[in-house]
């Protein structure tokens, strides 16, 4: 049982029409402070499910509770203070001429005192490492930096939960690692992270729990290591096990444990085996 649930999904169905569903009977409880990855093929229903977490979509049947509030009866703009949602393409939301204005935009609706607005904006700028770009024009920034502006503009609302839809799409390796490390430290500070992705290397390096969606249903749900061990089921969903995990499997003949997730883990395991031999 999850002790401190922040999002509860009960028998959630989302239908396209009478005969076609996008999501079928989803049951899922997400605890406060988790780092969860929502994975699956394109079209598996990842984004559709995530859009229920902040009320962008309302269930056809079943219900979604966020912090014990039924999303059906709460406006998206109000839920935004509980669940922040960062979209794939930052350009869908950027329209101010400075990073600072862009980030503090959402706070206008909260009627906060000026110093609180400033404090929250400062914190968000710091969290995404854009303090030096406070007065820069968002369009003069790189895609990776704009992605961080989008993240910051959601962070200022101080939501407990952050939903990130493919946070590394269109970013290069360095930018990807930057934003992922920021997300990790936000998780360490207590934020609940829900990350939509199909990059299993990202999942095995950063996430703690994985929910695998396939054709609108939950196929697997558990700690990353456990889920990755179900290789046959995963291959049905056309997800790729990270190369390093596949390598570790091939090395089980020399006593390397299965289900290793990162290069570092395999390295340590190999050193152990080598040490034992000597």
């Amino acid at each position: 049982m999850i002790s401190n649930p922040i999002i509860q999904v009960k028998d959630l169905c989302q239908n396209l029409d009478e005969n076609h569903f996008i999501l079928n009977k989803i049951n899922l409880t997400i605890g406060s402070g988790e780092f969860l990855a929502l994975v699956g093929q394109n079209g598996a229903g990842k984004t559709t499910l995530a859009k229920h977490f902040n009320g962008l979509l309302k269930p056809t049947s079943g219900k979604v509770l966020v912090d014990n509030l039924n999303t059906k009866y709460v406006k998206v703009s109000e839920l935004a203070q509980k669940v922040g949602y960062v979209f794939q393409n930052p350009d869908h939301q950027i329209f101010h001429n400075s990073v600072e204005k862009e980030i503090s935009f959402g706070l206008k609706y909260l009627n906060l005192p000026a110093e609180e607005v400033k404090r929250r904006t400062d914190d968000a700028l710091k969290a995404v490492g854009l303090v030096d770009y406070r007065y820069a024009h968002p369009y003069s920034l790189s895609r990776g930096q704009r992605q961080r502006v989008a993240l910051a503009s959601v962070l200022v609302l101080k939501p407990n939960v952050l939903v990130l839809d493919e946070p590394t799409t269109g970013l290069d390796y360095r930018e990807s690692m930057q934003i992922m490390n920021m997300i990790r430290s936000l998780n360490n500070q207590g934020h609940t992270i829900i990350m939509i992705t199909h990059d299993m290397s990202l999942v095995s390096t950063f996430a703690k729990r994985v929910v695998v969606l396939n054709k609108g249903e939950i196929l697997l749900d558990g700690p990353v290591r456990e889920v990755l061990s179900h290789q046959e089921i995963l291959s049905e969903t056309f997800l790729e096990i990270p190369p390093i995990s596949r390598l570790a499997d091939k090395l089980s003949v020399i006593g390397i444990p299965k289900n290793l997730l990162t290069v570092e883990e395999v390295y340590r395991a190999l050193c152990d085996v080598r040490g034992a031999e000597k």
Binding site: D172, Y173, S201, P243, I244, V263, V266, Y267, L270
Partner: peptide
């Protein structure tokens, strides 16, 4: 250049 290398290659080099 901020370019990743394949995981397997990384491991072999570490070893």
């Amino acid at each position: 250049a901020g370019v990743d290398i394949p995981q397997v290659t990384k491991l072999i080099k570490m070893l």
